[in-house]
Each structure stands twice: as C-alpha cells, then as structure tokens.
Design a protein around this nucleic acid. Sequence first.
DNA 1: TTAACAGGTCAACGGTGTTGTCATAAGGTG
DNA 2: CACCTTATGACAACACCGTTGACCTGTTAA
Lengths: 242, 242
Amino acid sequence: MSDRVVPPAARRRRRPTKQGVVLSEELIVETAMRLLGEHGAEALSVRRLGRALGADPSALYRYFRDTDELMLAIADELIGRTLRAWHPGGDWVADLRDLGLRMHAGALAQPQAAVLSSYRVTGRAYEIQAVETALGVLRGAGFPDAEAVRIYHAFVDQALAFGALDSANKALPKAAREAEAAVWRATYARLPADTHPHIHATARHLVTDMRHSSYPAALDLFLTAAAARLAQLTAAEDAGPV
Amino acid sequence: MSDRVVPPAARRRRRPTKQGVVLSEELIVETAMRLLGEHGAEALSVRRLGRALGADPSALYRYFRDTDELMLAIADELIGRTLRAWHPGGDWVADLRDLGLRMHAGALAQPQAAVLSSYRVTGRAYEIQAVETALGVLRGAGFPDAEAVRIYHAFVDQALAFGALDSANKALPKAAREAEAAVWRATYARLPADTHPHIHATARHLVTDMRHSSYPAALDLFLTAAAARLAQLTAAEDAGPV
DNA sequence: TTAACAGGTCAACGGTGTTGTCATAAGGTG
DNA sequence: CACCTTATGACAACACCGTTGACCTGTTAA
C-alpha cells in the first residue's frame, strides 16, 4: 500500500473528519509543532496527534508515508523560519554569530525535529539559500575559496551539532533531566579533594556552568580563531608577491 | 517495587537463566553494544536484548531500573574505552587535540551507541575520571578555575556533538548516504553563477570538503582560540597587580 | 540441613506505529 | 438533477514496545 499518500497538488476532496475538522498537510504540521511546544517531545505520537486534530490516527497516513516524513516536514518548516528571521548586516563576524545563535535557538524551539534532521542534507530550497548566503559572507570577508568552504563547513556543522546535542538533552523526559542536574550537585560537587582535586576545586563553577549550553562560548572561540586565520591569510598575501 | 535493583556490590547469588546464561551488568552492556553495532539503534529493545541474552526481558530490571539507566551504562563504557587509550604527555594543546580526536573516533567506532548516549550525563566512574583528568590538563596549563570549566565544557560538548553528528550520518542507511553525496554533486555543483555565485565559485571545494567530517578543522580552530585566550589571561595577570 | 531471599519467569497492562478493509461524501459528468 | 468514481476518513487488528506484580526456585549462609 505505497499509494496511500496522495501528492499535495492532486488533493481535491476535503472531506471533514467525524468531528468536523478539515485536514491538510499544513494543519497537521502546525498541530504537531503546537503539541511539541505545549507538552514536550513525548507528547507527539500519531495517536495523540490524531486526537488533537479530531481525526482518526490512521487518517494522517493519507498525508505522510510515516512519522519520519512528518518529522522532516516539521524540520523543513523550521529551517525556513530561521532563515527568514536572519538579516546579515555587513560585519561578517557579527553576522555569523547571529546566524549561529539563531540556528541554535531554532533547533531548541523544536528539539526533536532538530535531533532527527540535523545530520541530513536535504538539497532543498531553504538549505541552498542558507549555503549561498553564508558562503557569500565568508568570501565577502576576504577568505579565499578553499578556506571559505572549510570555515563554512566547520561553522555550519558546529551549529547543527550543538543544536542537536542541546536539543536531545532538552527533549529528555523531565525526570531524566532533573536527574542530570542532580548528578552535578550531588555527585560531582561532593567529591573529596584528595581523590579528585580538580573537580573539587572547580565544583562551584561546574554546577552553574554545566547547566547551560556551551554553544555561545564555543561559537565565540570559533569566530575568534576564524578572524585570526583571516588576518594571517591577508598578512601573508600583502607580504608575498601579487 | 523500587528495590528491584540490587547494587552491584551486594550481588552474590548468580542463578543461571533457563537457557543457562549467567547474567551480569557487564554482560548486559556488552550484549547491548553488540546488538547496536550489528543491527542498528532500532534493534535495541528490552525484549530483543533479553532474547539475545537468553533471558526473560524482565530479568534485566534486576540490573537496571529502566532503559535509561542501561543507556547511561553504555555511555559510560564508551567513555571508558576512549579514556583507557588516551595518555596525556604534558603539552596541553597536543593532549586536548589527541583526546578530542580519540573521543570522535570512539564515537564513530560505535555510532549507534554514540548517537544515543552523547548527550547524557552519567555521573558514573569513567565519566568522573574523564572530567577530573581534562580539568587537570586545563588548570595545569594555567587557566583560572572559572575559565577552565568554561573551556572544558565547550571542549567536551564540541567533541560529543561532532561525534554524535558524524555518527548519525554514518549510521544512515547506505542508500540515504549515497543520496546525500549525490546532492552535492548533482544539485549544488550545477547551480548557475548568476543565481548562486558563491556556491558556483566554490562548487569544486564543496564537493570534496563536505564529504568529510569538519571536526578536525573545528577542533584546531577551538584550540587556537583557547591558546590565544590563555595568552591574553596570563598577560593581563603579569601586567596587573599581584 | 534448612530457611531466607536474590533473582529468573510469567502474564498482564497500557502504550506505540502501521496497515487492510470498509463506508461514504465530494466532485465530475451527462 | 442523478449517477459513478474515488479520495479519504474510520475501524479493527497486528506486532511491537517498556514496565510491573506475583510467583517460583536455586544458592547461600547459618
């Protein structure tokens, strides 16, 4: 039964469900995102989504082949939102910092979509647009092509990787997340100085620091190093022959 | 029934299962990792694990409170393997680079386990040992406590995040991975210069560069920035009052 | 030798994604 | 307007999943 899903363009009849709701791809994605936002990652299941929509769970399979396809639709919408909100201003370091933070925040806004989509190359419109723009920022800053690609690659993977890591953590059941916070307070903060001198000495910092994402710090280190690299490259160019 | 799990130290009787297997925490973790490696993440369930062990699924609950605790045990074993192979030599930059590359390689060696465990704080023995050692390297290098924790946090999260990202990609079904490579060759490399000038200009580099992990590059940028930060800190200290 | 009990087994519960089948309302056609 | 086709929603069932309470039995300490 592989022809269960009808391509969106071919949809014409919109029979309402028993409860009077007229389904559509958009409505389903929208409702799924609302469920995720309101009740967390574990609240999203085909059955719950069906209930929230006022439709039989199996009706969703007329719109998405499986849950994975639904996740990708959510992820795609996410990329679009991030990109639409970003407006480069001319300072390449500031622009990249802004883009990175927006990608990270966008991932955290829909953690479980981010977890599933971060490591995929879609080749779709929004992604291409993002690559083009980011590369433009780096080349405009003065990076030679090969270097621009290297920096771009590291930058985007870092944003995606941290986005996924922090999203995965955020998507954890509440009990597990609280247990992790407790580990820092109850286990690490109580290790004695004689067996674990370094943890003991920094325990206070560990408890406060490990609660938050390290992405902003990592991003700033990244941008610092990238700027240094650019300075180094242009200096070599100025000194050398044409 | 919260006393279902008996602490490992208190275990004494080891009744074999119906099929003659003598269970243990180690055997369960080992078997779980083998299942992950052989049949992918979706092959790991309590019931399948029980079958693979030759025991009733519910027997596992004598060793782990729930599946989450089992995941943490797997994560810790992964850390342990990496840690045992790492021997710091005194140069903090070289040591951290080596540790980062080993963590990344360790994740790729067990991609399925890495994907599931990278974002967990276990509070178990190996993890504690890893935190202690890495903090020691940074404090030994001269970072003040708060800064050592910040750098440590960014470093370890970066290694885990890239490890998970690249693992997830590696664990993709073969067809999907090939499709992704094709996207760079067939879609990105063919975009015309007038609509996508930056992608067009760097297409050659994109095709070759995006195939590989960007972690080594990101790690080197990270270490460069960290070293610069240390120099800056010690310079300020030398200049200022005692 | 025996009594306690750790630990393996069984059966059941309420959840999950998914699919084969059926019924029916929407929409085109005459 | 009536008729026919068919898209699409509903239903029921399947095979899983994690988890738990009750039971049973081999191991071990006394």
